[in-house]
């Protein structure tokens, strides 16, 4: 597994991990007997311990590489693994269907709901088809159409976010990329059904927030959520795109950082070694967290739900008044 630039101590450990993986593979190919089983057990334990060590020491930049891992479960995978009876719905009824934003009707543990999110592609053809997971205005308008559908029939909304950002292109500007996102932000703030947003990989700025205003916002362990990509930030503030690693550190965009300042409600753990090592387990962990959240939200009357959604975002910000009173982002 490649994790971007190798730093000294974690680099050595990673080599050891690779070596252990090879040894385990070789031994498991032998005819099993008591001796090899013991060896295998010993090696597996050692591997697990090492992996834990490596992954507990990942830098923000390495985490970003994980969030962009080509084998990471994409939104469609999560939909398939978590929801039942999924029927995809297409089009924004205004201009076209945006394949970078997918969504439809589904059931979540027997409960009808709307699920939607940004979708990346795996091979070159799919990547182009999905526009590298970067929606056009039509994508945001389609998402809003589905959310209004959910509202009309009192169904909860699940959104999944994994995008580098909304697409910056000529057509997107002509058709009002900014307006599409702005409209979504306002309408999501007052949608009368529960909204649960989960950032599964990349949470790229306004393009992520455009479907990310929820009663609960979760992040997978190695996902990131940022106002700008570290590369973009480095290009502007450091005038050097090579400084992306530094920018990634400075921006504080890992799930733990954001939980600490109260911008996300919870961090959903990933399987040891990252979500790409075990899609099924990753989905199960997400599923469990979503179940709990939905149960909580369903118990809240609509008016109160909207009230607490408002104050959820209202309290975000770190400022000081000249008279010395402080207000911080998190209530904690």
């Amino acid at each position: 597994m490649r994790l971007g630039p190798v730093t000294d101590d974690t680099g050595i450990q990673r080599e050891e991990v690779n070596l252990l993986e090879k040894q385990i593979e070789e031994i498991s190919r032998l005819i099993p007997n008591a001796h090899t089983a013991m060896d295998l057990e010993r090696l597996r334990k050692r591997l697990e311990k090492l992996r834990k060590e490596v992954f507990s020491k990942l830098t923000p930049w390495q985490r970003i590489q994980l969030s962009r891992h080509p084998q990471r479960p994409y939104v469609q995978d999560f939909i398939d693994l978590i929801f039942q009876n999924y029927v995809e719905l297409h089009g924004d009824r205004r201009f076209k269907d945006d394949p970078a934003m997918i969504g439809g009707m589904a059931t979540f543990h027997g409960e009808p709901c709307i699920v939607l999110g940004t979708q990346k592609g795996r091979d070159t053809k799919q990547k182009l088809h999905r526009n590298f997971g970067m929606p056009q205005p039509e994508g945001y308008r389609k998402a809003m159409r589905l959310m209004k559908l959910a509202e009309k029939f009192s169904r909860p909304v699940f959104t999944f976010i994994d995008t580098a950002g909304a697409y910056p292109g000529i057509g997107a500007e002509e058709r009002g990329q900014a307006e599409a996102i702005a409209y979504n932000l306002r309408e999501m703030a007052r949608l009368t059904v529960p909204i649960i947003a989960t950032i599964t990989g990349e949470g790229g700025s306004g393009g992520a927030l455009g479907i990310g205003v929820g009663d609960r916002v979760f992040m997978l362990e190695y996902a990131y959520y940022s106002v700008i990509s570290p590369e973009g930030c480095a290009a502007i503030l450091w005038k050097d795109q090579e400084k992306a690693e530094e920018a990634a550190n400075a921006l504080k965009i890992t799930s733990q950082d954001l939980k600490a300042i109260g911008l996300v409600d919870d961090v959903i753990p990933e399987p040891e070694g990252g979500a790409h090592t075990d899609h099924k387990l990753a989905a199960t962990l997400v599923d469990q967290r979503l179940q709990r959240a939905l149960a909580e939200l369903k118990a809240i009357p609509v008016q109160k739900l909207l009230e607490s959604r408002y104050s959820r975002f209202r309290l975000m910000g770190c400022i000081a008044e000249s008279n010395g009173t402080f207000q911080t982002g998190s209530e904690a």
Binding site: A182, L185, R186, L209, S226, K252, R309, R314, M316
Partner: peptide, 14 residues
């Protein structure tokens, strides 16, 4: 101000 700045968008539009 990182992601906090992003959240101002949601705060104002709300």
């Amino acid at each position: 101000e990182g992601t906090l700045s992003l959240m101002q968008m949601a705060k104002i539009t709300g």
